[in-house]
Simulated scan of single mutants.
Amino acid sequence: MTDQPNRADLGKDPSRVSGMFDTVATRYDTTNTVLSLGNDQLWRIATTRAVDPRPGMSILDLAAGTGASSVALARSGARVTAADFSPGMIAEGRRRHGGIPNLSFTQADATALPFGDDEFDVVTMSFGLRNVIDPKKALAELLRVTKPGGRLVVCEFSHPPQPAFAKLYGFYNDRVLPLVARVVSSNADAYQYLNESIKDWPDQRTLSAWIRQAGWSAVAHRNLSFGIVALHRAVKPAGRLDG
């Protein structure tokens, strides 16, 4: 266990993860844009297109942070629930986007979601599954709250398959990212955890296997930004009964 109270470690103790994200909430979106060299905007667009939100849909955006991704989904006319484990993130999301129609904010634990069975047409999670203490349980919970025939979209950091680019990416994360984080973030230590969690996270094929094991079907993924990020998609089998 780390002695630093303002960052989590790979043990992913829920209270420490939540507390860490509370400390970065106000500058979270700006910091992510700087550290990703603007790629976070492209990743959000790709995720929104994969979700394909439409009027009347019910969408759960889990690990929504301050709601930046949720806003893009709600603009379609879909009913969007932005859920996050961090009360600081939820408070900042409500402050920024509380007046947007069809968008609500809820504090939620990904491993014990406060929603009923078969509630959502689409469930999506961007850059949050990696921070859950039991990601396999979270995938099962997402399956439970999704309607039969409904869809899963997960955007998460992954591992570039091309060795030369993977080496360059590793250099950026190890040497450049910590320096930039100290300038732009409200909690630079949190981004040390970010780097550690990316290295520890499984590759694209392994995460796809976890999704299948949770009960999802039609599992597929595609790489974004040369595999820095992978966009995973799946469908809840029609006629499946949960609960």
Rank of each mutant, 00 (worst) to 15 (best):
S208T: 10
L103D: 06
P101W: 14
T23F: 04
A82R: 00
V180R: 02
G170I: 08
M89G: 12
T146K: 01
L129S: 03
R96S: 01
T146I: 05
P114G: 11
F120S: 07
R240E: 14
P202K: 07
V17Q: 08
A238E: 14
P53Y: 00
A110I: 12
A46F: 05
A220E: 09
R7H: 01
A82E: 06
R182E: 13
G215P: 11
S126E: 01
K136S: 12
F171H: 12
P55H: 01
S185Y: 07
M57P: 10
V154D: 06
Q41Y: 15
D242T: 15
R79A: 04
P161T: 11
R144H: 06
H232Q: 03
T124Y: 09
F115T: 11
A91Y: 02
S104Y: 03
R79P: 00
D52W: 04
Y191R: 04
R96Q: 12
F21N: 02
D118N: 14
G93C: 09
V183C: 14
A64C: 13
A220T: 05
W43N: 05
Q162C: 06
E156F: 01
T26P: 02
A238L: 09
A166H: 08
A72I: 01
P5G: 09
K136Q: 14
L37M: 15
F85G: 00
